[in-house]
Every structure is written in C-alpha cells, then in structure tokens.
Nucleic acid binder design. Sequence first.
DNA 1: CGACAACTTGACGGGCGTCAACCGGAGTGG
DNA 2: CCACTCCGGTTGACGCCCGTCAAGTTGTCG
Lengths: 245, 245
Amino acid sequence: MSVMDQSSQSLLRTAAQLQKIGDLTDEQCHDLVALPHRLLNAFPPRTLVREGAGIDDCCLLVSGYACRTKLTRRGHRQILSFHVAGDILNVERLLLDRTDHNVQVLSAATIAFIPIGELRKLMREDKAIGDAIWRYSLIEASVGREWLLNVGRRGALDRVAHMLCEFVARSHEAGLGEPQACPIPITQETMADATGLTSVHVNRMLKQLRLAGAIVGVGKELRVLDWDSLKRIAGFDPSYLCLGA
Amino acid sequence: MSVMDQSSQSLLRTAAQLQKIGDLTDEQCHDLVALPHRLLNAFPPRTLVREGAGIDDCCLLVSGYACRTKLTRRGHRQILSFHVAGDILNVERLLLDRTDHNVQVLSAATIAFIPIGELRKLMREDKAIGDAIWRYSLIEASVGREWLLNVGRRGALDRVAHMLCEFVARSHEAGLGEPQACPIPITQETMADATGLTSVHVNRMLKQLRLAGAIVGVGKELRVLDWDSLKRIAGFDPSYLCLGA
DNA sequence: CGACAACTTGACGGGCGTCAACCGGAGTGG
DNA sequence: CCACTCCGGTTGACGCCCGTCAAGTTGTCG
C-alpha cells in the first residue's frame, strides 16, 4: 500500500462510525474520507491537546488508544473517557473556542488532524453529516454521565469491573477484540485515573476479579475471560453506549 | 399579567440564554419564544422524565430548580447536573431516541414542554438556532467533565466547596443571586448525591466551611458569605462553564 | 548486566460510611 | 392552642474501605 493509499484510508474508521450513527449514504461517507488532513504518529505519554489551547484542528484517532484527561489544581489526574480507532478526540472544538481538557495517547497511535474550517464547511453543506457529528457528541455525553455514576456511586470492585466492561464493549464494537477474551492494553495507573482510585487499590481489585475467574493475565496482557461474570459484578448495562444507533 | 402573557413569557429565559450562547438576533429569539408548548407546575420529589423513556417533548425549566440523576442497579443515586431557570433539561432527546437519565425537580418549579418535532423543525429552518442549541449541549458536556474531575479526584471538603461554587456562579448568571451572599436552596442529601458523598459527611464539611467563615446559615437558608475564600478552598476556575460565550 | 517501568504485596492509618440518637421547624388535625 | 408527625439537620461512636508508604518482583530494553 502506498503512502497515498494509506492516507486516503486513514479516516475510514471514523467515517464508518459516523455512517452507522447518522445513517449516512456511501457518498457522504466518501466526502468524510476525502477531507484534507495530516497524520502524526505518537507514543505515550505524549499529550496531543492541552487544556486552554485553541488549537485549529479536529483530531481523529486513526489507530491505537487515547484518552481525555483533566487535572485538579493540586495535580491529580482524572481520565474522562477512553478512545479507540475511529473516535473523534475533541468534537467540542467544532463549536467552542476553548478546549477544557487534555488529550493523551495511551499506546503507539496515529492521529489525523483535520483543519476545523474544512470540517465545518462540510457540515454546513451537508446537514446529515452535521447531525451525525452532533449525535456523536451527544453519545459521548451519555457515556460521560455513566462514568460520573460509576465514580460517584459504585464501590471499588464494581467500579473497576464496569470500566473493564465498557472498554471491552467499545473495543469489540470497533473490531479490536471479542467480548470473551478481549485484551486490555492499559496500565493499572491509567485504570486508577479513570476510576478515581489509586493504582495500588486497582491492583487489589484486579486480583479479586482474577480470583473470581472473571479475568486472567498479568501486566500488559490482561484479558477478560468470563464476560458474563464481569458484567454481573459491574452491573453493566451497555445501552448508554448507544451502540445500536 | 394575563395567563396568555404568562405563557408567552415562559420561554424567555431559555431564549435569552441561547441568544447569548449562539449570538442570535432578536428575531431568532422571538421565534424561540413563540414555540408551542404546555406548562406544568411540579413539586419535589417529582420525577419529570424517567430513564429509558422515549418521551416526545423537550423540557425547559421556566422557574425553580431541577437536576438530572442516574441510579445504580443497587439503587444508589448520582446527580449529574443542576439546572436553573432557562435551562434545557433533556437536550440529547433532540437527536437520540432514548433518555439515559432521570429529571427531577428540586423545588417548586414550572416546566415548559415543547413537542420535539416543533423544535427540530425550527432548528432545520434556522441553522443559527440549531448551532446555538448544539453549543448549549457541548457546554453541558464540559460541565459534566468538571463534575467527573470533582467527584473522582478531589477530597470531600474541596468537592463540596466546588459544588457550591458552581451553584452560585450559575445562579448569578441566571440572575438569581449575587456571588456574595447567594442562597442555596437544596438539601444536604441532594448535595451528597451530587458530590458522591453521604449526607452526614456533607454536613461535616459544611460545618467546616462555616468555621472557615466561607458560608453561613442553616437548613434551607444556607448562604455563601465569603466567595473568594470558598473559591480558594475549592480550586474553582469558572472557565469550564463557558459563561463568557 | 544495569536501569527502568509496571506490577505485587504487606503494614498502617485516616477519611469517609454507617448507625443511631437528638433537635428544631413546618405542616396537620384535634 | 396544643399534640403529633415528618423531614431535614446535627452530632457522636465506631469501623471499614481505600489511600499511603515502602519493599520486593518481574519483564523489557539498552
């Protein structure tokens, strides 16, 4: 595959996701893929976007894993969402002047930068595409609400289990693994910042989940073994992910 | 003021808020106010919208206070956001088929129900109005991210203080009080469900804030006394509220 | 082989949850 | 007018969950 082909394919996952979300035609999908952009390879713990920055590009995750983060004044980090290939990393930038969070990569990743003006132009010209992206942002908000419930009102074990469930469900949706035996390539420190716990306590909870037979593996090869069991512990109901639409 | 006048005024606050957010003309503002709707008076602890429901109206808060909530399977409640007069209580319903949370009133309140079809039609006909509402939903998402940071990564004292700060800042923006000496008409149990704490511990934190001279009052007459002091304790930076735009 | 990052485990302590009692004000009915 | 109830706030005692600190292990990369 030539460099040109690679580049022309890089927005495909995002286009496919928006096609499903917004019920777009193949032609609209093509318009999305044809958007001008530049690519970047990044490695952790690289920060792509910083809070308060008014960057001029919309960032799409072409491959790899990424997350959004915020920091308290005292320097404690909270992860706001996980992202897989095809996700848009800063939708809100399309209409707001300021980015209120950071974006960091969690693995080796490729990111596509699209000038905001180009994307806005396409959205203006084709209302269905605009609606699809709006819908995408509303689904993100729905996921964010579930995270708030998770962090605010579930115990540590349920909380970790729930985070793993979402990770697996979204990986599966993106074609990156099976619910049964899906790999989870993130560190325990990352899981801690996503759940509002410490890495030490995440470790204890993972041990407990291992003893319960729900997960297996160590280090970077953590895998979900018993999907049903994990869902039960977490009280996981995937409807908030809006995968069906 | 006649009943007719009352009804014709009821959407005014929402229109004014969207006008500021989306830089709308007076005429566009007028179109919003003229939307067909019916009014409802409600008292706590009434639930207006239930999770999973596919209700056909968009709910605007005309007066009073309300909040969005979610429940874990075990029945623990998390408040997702507070709302004051002029707020839209279920924006996401404009593009998603399902509501993923509940809406409850926190005080005597008046709600306007607008048929979704009517609002969608107006948004289609006037793109600026659609953009303003999208922007509104993106600002809500920004607030939600700050809540996640608050609940996940701040200690109990900072957390309660931060919640009070936001409540005051938004009340002030809506013209319902001054930063200095702003009343906070919600119960400690409500504050607990908003911060991921228990009402007992919220009580302890409020006592501490009283001793620090930041707040005064008891029961339903809780008031912010020393705004700067409260902001400092909370580490509050209002930019996430996007009040300037 | 050394350096380093991530995981693992144990000991200890504190922040916050839980339980329970009491208080005070608002509403209600006699 | 007073008794009663109810809801919300207040406080203390107690204990557990989870944070903190620290040491040790494993795997990877140079």
